Amino acid sequence: MQNFVPPERARELVARLSAGFSPWTVRATGVEVHGCAGGPWELLETVPLG
Rank of each mutant, 00 (worst) to 15 (best):
V47S: 00
W41H: 04
S22H: 15
W41T: 04
V26A: 13
L43P: 01
R27H: 09
E12M: 09
G50Y: 04
A28F: 09
V47F: 01
H34G: 04
P7Y: 07
H34Q: 10
G38P: 09
G38A: 11
V31E: 03
P40K: 10
F21I: 00
P23N: 04
P48R: 01
T29S: 14
L44P: 02
A10E: 13
G30S: 08
N3T: 08
G39M: 09
E42W: 06
H34M: 09
L49M: 02
L17R: 14
G20H: 06
W41G: 05
W24T: 09
W41D: 07
R27C: 02
L43N: 01
T29D: 14
F21A: 15
V31D: 02
A37D: 15
A28D: 00
L13E: 15
T29H: 12
V33I: 14
H34V: 03
V33Y: 05
P48N: 01
G30A: 02
L44M: 10
S18V: 02
M1G: 14
L13S: 11
E8G: 06
L44T: 04
L44H: 03
R27T: 13
F21Q: 07
G30T: 00
L43V: 04
L49A: 00
L49N: 07
L17F: 13
E45N: 02
P7W: 08
R27D: 08
G50Q: 11
G38N: 10
V47N: 01
P6S: 14
V33M: 04
